[in-house]
């Protein structure tokens, strides 16, 4: 299990290759990447704030639960903070398991929980000003399926 919270850009290819190279004993890897939406070209930048200390702990708790529930052989979560441009990767996860069903399910679980239980806050900057992204009710109800 590897958890990284960083300001630096994400190298999706390098991270995926390293994860795959170390996935001994696995039969499937699922990766997910979240990008900064450009909102139809109106977005200037996205600023992501987080709670250093709690962020790492919260992600570790969620990832440990996913690992146990779906017998993952390994898991990776990288989440960025700071100022990001449109279309840049915000975060990525990777799950490795013996079979794909578990790798897919664990990845969905991780994303649902990271969305509303990892202490990050997004602010969208556009020509008309800055606006904090509001959490959606659907994000909270998505947790009920687990």
């Amino acid at each position: 299990m590897r958890i990284v919270v960083q300001a630096a850009p994400l190298n999706l290819g390098a991270e995926t290759n390293t994860f795959a190279a170390n996935a001994k004993g696995a039969g499937a890897i699922v990766t997910f990447t979240g990008l900064v939406r450009d909102n139809g070209g109106t977005l200037t930048a996205m600023e992501i704030e987080h709670y250093p200390g709690m962020t790492e702990k919260a992600i570790a708790t969620i990832t440990t639960e996913a690992t146990t529930r779906w017998s993952l052989t390994d898991a990776l979560v990288i989440h960025r903070f700071g100022r990001l441009a449109a279309n840049e990767p915000i975060m990525m996860i990777a799950t490795a398991a013996l079979h794909r069903t578990n790798a897919f399910a664990a990845a969905e679980f991780l994303m649902d929980y990271l969305k509303s239980r990892a202490p990050f806050w997004k602010k969208e900057i556009s020509a008309s000003g800055a606006k904090w992204v509001a959490a959606k009710d659907a994000d909270e109800t998505a947790l009920n399926r687990w």
Partner: peptide
Amino acid sequence: ALDQKLSSFDAPLIDVQEVAFFPPMTGG
């Protein structure tokens, strides 16, 4: 959050070192 764990408004503050207030999280 009390000492970096999500908590509730009726939680006691005894022995708590750090209280954090924030809007609903928007990670991912």
